[in-house]
Design a protein around this nucleic acid. Sequence first.
DNA 1: GATTTTTTGATTTACGTACATCAAAATTGG
DNA 2: CCAATTTTGATGTACGTAAATCAAAAAATC
Lengths: 341, 341
Amino acid sequence: MRPTVHDIAAAAGVSLATVDRVLNQRPGVRHVTREKVETAIRELGYIRDVAAANLAKGRTYPLVFILPASDNSFMHGLNAEIRQAVLRSSAERTDIRTIEVPAFDPAALVSVLEELSREKPCGIALVATDAPGVRAVVDRLVRERFPIVTLVSDLTGSLRHHYAGVDNIAAGRTAARLLGRFLGPKKGEIAVLAGSMLVRDHRERLEGFTAVMAEEFPDLAILPVLEGRDDPEIAHMLVADALCRNAGIIGVYSLGAGNRGLIRALKEKAVDRVLTVIAHELTAHTRAALIDNTIDAILNQDAGHEVRSAIRVLKAKADGLAVIEAQERIRLDIFLKDNLP
Amino acid sequence: MRPTVHDIAAAAGVSLATVDRVLNQRPGVRHVTREKVETAIRELGYIRDVAAANLAKGRTYPLVFILPASDNSFMHGLNAEIRQAVLRSSAERTDIRTIEVPAFDPAALVSVLEELSREKPCGIALVATDAPGVRAVVDRLVRERFPIVTLVSDLTGSLRHHYAGVDNIAAGRTAARLLGRFLGPKKGEIAVLAGSMLVRDHRERLEGFTAVMAEEFPDLAILPVLEGRDDPEIAHMLVADALCRNAGIIGVYSLGAGNRGLIRALKEKAVDRVLTVIAHELTAHTRAALIDNTIDAILNQDAGHEVRSAIRVLKAKADGLAVIEAQERIRLDIFLKDNLP
DNA sequence: GATTTTTTGATTTACGTACATCAAAATTGG
DNA sequence: CCAATTTTGATGTACGTAAATCAAAAAATC
């Protein structure tokens, strides 16, 4: 049997009330007494029964998710996963709210965060726009003991407790190697479609991609990056245009969202050409394109895992508990048409 | 606030004791009364607070893991993950025990299961040897209301509640496509190294692999399968022998364990040849081989996820609760040297 | 040494459920 | 209709922790 507060009280030679004061950092305990209790806790290996504690406290975990208001399948999917989590909230004692902010807009994100700091949620998850202003508020909130995790896209150099997303440099590198290996001995040009260089995940993917391309596949030349702002219409225009102008394109890497537009452009302008295409994010559109051979591989981050991981981590941080690191690592999924879920 | 037993009692117009009798299927409730209570439960959307219930019951979950006594890195890793889970058992109210049985030995597995049926654990996870005798006991145990999940390798047509492992047909298909795409226009022969055709996971991987090879890569010929019994020594011998005899081999698919032997053989016999190699299971050996380009891609199942998933599912089944299907799907990891964890 | 302040103890209630006991009511059998 | 049986209610305790109250003891201040 694991020890209880009663065992601690007996072992330390103090009353239950004192143990409670120590455990819940309430005032009115002398330093020496506090130490006696802490020693007993350590020696007996006491671990607070979180279930019982939550029951007694009637505790719930008010959590806030801050998402960019982007109209693409990935963000819709992320939203859907959060709604799923809301359905489970009674069992998990969570109370989840989402706030949408304009995409790629640091100032809007900052003001939302400022406001949140007043209403004291017990945890915040945000898709970070990577800007110094954002980092400043996040760091301040962390210092004020708000558990904060970044979701999908991280915040450079910030104190956030955790990042629930994939390693985007590795993702870019992986895309490059897949593209290079799939193309084999062919020489030609590679078009890269990104959302915006204002978000860190896109920058990092590009960074990884170009690094491996330069190191290992010198016969493939990367064309200037097309910035589609994760918008299907803009993406369509940019890709269609590039394909028309440049007959030397033999491969495409789409590292952002808005793949609907990319796929349409490919089907319109490249029916007669053999292109090798790698895209990010598994959605209804990219899935169909993978199956009909328009896309050769999809790199994906599982939005459901990211949301559940963010919630687990925020709850754990709120309780001052450890997390299972390996469990919270968000893996890069690679889908070919054979291993689609 | 979610409804409690008190709310149910009030709504149904009965006493707390009667609600309790209904909830815990105790006798002494008239049919009509029982229905009244069940209606109230449904209408208020009552969900038992599992944490409070477990607290009251002082419940623990005695779980048993049955593993083959195989001396390879994957099984060692699986064992290590179970030990990790044991460390968490006080917090998770689990009481985990593992039993080792001889590998590829249905009779041994059956007798262990028979014995377990007497001591009533609240859940069993087993790496199944796919044999009718094993299926028969498992089905009997399921009918006797033992929660059972298969781990890593499934049991054909059985009633087990859940399978915590990857889709091995998809894994084989994926391996074939990666190999085919990496080899590009080359023609030649492919060596396949398996553990044993007695376990379903290996059979399925081979099935998926040969299917895609036949459909999509007719220029690649699959040589007769080498059965290495997941043993590094045997694997080494078989692969070295095949490489010496057959100069036409341009690719290797290792779908089982014992990759230490494979890697040694490759380094000894194929330094001067350009081979494309796909192997299963990320271990210290395969990881090193991926980094030094001896292996081109590794397909992996995350043993930690499998163990944690098995535990979650067994607990949920023991409590008669639903599981989050998407969370319990074990994904096939594809590792290139760029996305190693 | 008396007074104030701080620290500690003892005790109670609560959280939501499980489970046991005993009495009261309702139903059934004869 | 009475007795036997079944069903239901009322009540209390327990699980491990949180949180509050009030009294008692110890320490610090003058």
